[in-house]
Write a protein that binds this DNA or RNA. Sequence first.
DNA 1: CATATATTTCGTTATATGACGAAATATAAA
DNA 2: TTTATATTTCGTCATATAACGAAATATATG
Lengths: 132, 132
Amino acid sequence: MTKYKTDMAAVLDICKALADPNRLRILMSLRDGELCVCQITEMLALAPSTVSKHLLILKQAGMVESSKRGRWIYYTLLVDSTQTVPVMNWLKASLTNDNVIKRDHVLLKKILSENPTELCCQQRTTRGREQL
Amino acid sequence: MTKYKTDMAAVLDICKALADPNRLRILMSLRDGELCVCQITEMLALAPSTVSKHLLILKQAGMVESSKRGRWIYYTLLVDSTQTVPVMNWLKASLTNDNVIKRDHVLLKKILSENPTELCCQQRTTRGREQL
DNA sequence: CATATATTTCGTTATATGACGAAATATAAA
DNA sequence: TTTATATTTCGTCATATAACGAAATATATG
């Protein structure tokens, strides 16, 4: 396993990270690829500071990683880990049909496609409308 | 999935059940078969009431089941569940080499073999010494 | 029946956790 | 440089959780 932490501590960090509905929703929302914090925040409808804390917990557990691009920070699943692969497989198998997760999925598609000017990530470098 | 609970609630109950070191130790201790509460209590060196609570949480999460035999209550892993199998496989792969878990394993073998008269489960119906 | 043993339930207490808002930080746009 | 946007950090508060001891419950033994 990795360094620093004992195996127990590593597993425990993952289990604690999974032991919250909003963090499970975040993990499931990252199935299809990266999302920036503001998109996740929009989906969860929580305070940005709260979402930031959730993401930190997931990151410290080794479930996700972040990359900064311009003003935005994108989070992705850390799929190259011996820990996260079985965990995510189990979560996907168990939660894909959950109503909250399904609702999130629909909402996310809307957030990613429509992305109106009022929303965060308005001026995305790649393909956003630039009008304020 | 099962009844009553949503998928999310079911997964959450499992994750919360796993998010405690003593409950992980209990689950790992049940790898090799059933144990009665007093044996688990001896291994963990916690108050019986605390162990009882941990076992209740694991049971309500669907990770273990109990069967009463005489004065004793034996707990076993619930291995016929689509939830517990992948979870336990992951735990076994991740925790078998952990030092605490290894120490528990040694201790449990001692508890199961020696089982001196002072200990709990003194007068086991199957093969215990009967002297008080 | 009285006693000892095994386990659970209950009440209490200390700590952990999740939520928020305000303030700090960083980066891009005007 | 000033302003707006994106995110994090910090402090606070309410709730959840883990531990214990005492008491209750159940079952076997004397």
